[in-house]
Computed example of a mutant assay.
Amino acid sequence: MASATLLSLSPIFANATVVFVETNIGNFEINLTDEDTPETVANFLRYVEAERYSNVIVHRSINNFITQTGGYTFNSETGTLTGVDAFDPVVNEPVFSNVRGTIAMAKLGGDPNSATSEWFINLADNSANLDFQNEGFTVLVR
């Protein structure tokens, strides 16, 4: 059986919003781009505050591209995946480039304003592709 990476997020409010991410392979903080992508950050924090990111798994990981999460939780008792209950999609706010180490919202192909709960970490400089594909992907952490 493959191991799942479980995430738990909680907001820390200071001058900028920082979200503390706990995983079963290590913890980290992410500094959100509140002023530059306000709708996207508000959407992300809505999931955090509603605890919809509790026990989400990394469900997509492509070497030298992205690692994606925020879409599914894993029930260890039943061995099943459940989709995260999504809020309405958020408007696309592509301000920053999708370079290595940034975090951006995932969305449906052909619909730039379709981001809901799923997000990804850029494992490489994906700016040549993701800054233009589907009207760009909103980076909410840089």
Results as ranks from 00 to 15, higher is better:
residue 2 A to W: 09
residue 2 A to Y: 09
residue 3 S to E: 09
residue 6 L to E: 10
residue 9 L to N: 09
residue 9 L to M: 14
residue 11 P to Q: 13
residue 15 N to A: 10
residue 15 N to P: 00
residue 20 F to D: 13
residue 21 V to A: 03
residue 22 E to Y: 13
residue 23 T to D: 06
residue 29 E to F: 11
residue 31 N to Q: 09
residue 31 N to S: 12
residue 32 L to T: 11
residue 33 T to L: 02
residue 35 E to K: 14
residue 38 P to A: 04
residue 39 E to K: 08
residue 40 T to C: 03
residue 40 T to E: 04
residue 41 V to T: 07
residue 42 A to E: 06
residue 42 A to M: 03
residue 51 E to H: 12
residue 52 R to Y: 05
residue 54 S to W: 06
residue 56 V to S: 00
residue 59 H to G: 06
residue 60 R to L: 12
residue 61 S to H: 13
residue 62 I to C: 14
residue 65 F to R: 15
residue 72 Y to K: 13
residue 73 T to Y: 04
residue 75 N to S: 07
residue 76 S to T: 01
residue 78 T to G: 05
residue 78 T to E: 05
residue 79 G to M: 02
residue 81 L to Q: 08
residue 87 F to W: 02
residue 87 F to A: 08
residue 88 D to I: 01
residue 88 D to Y: 04
residue 94 P to A: 10
residue 94 P to N: 07
residue 95 V to I: 12
residue 99 V to T: 13
residue 103 I to S: 10
residue 105 M to W: 02
residue 107 K to S: 13
residue 109 G to K: 12
residue 110 G to H: 12
residue 114 S to D: 06
residue 114 S to A: 12
residue 115 A to N: 14
residue 116 T to P: 09
residue 116 T to N: 13
residue 116 T to W: 07
residue 121 I to G: 09
residue 121 I to S: 04
residue 121 I to E: 05
residue 123 L to K: 05
residue 124 A to M: 00
residue 127 S to A: 06
residue 128 A to V: 06
residue 136 G to A: 03
residue 137 F to Y: 15
residue 139 V to C: 11
residue 139 V to L: 11
residue 140 L to R: 01
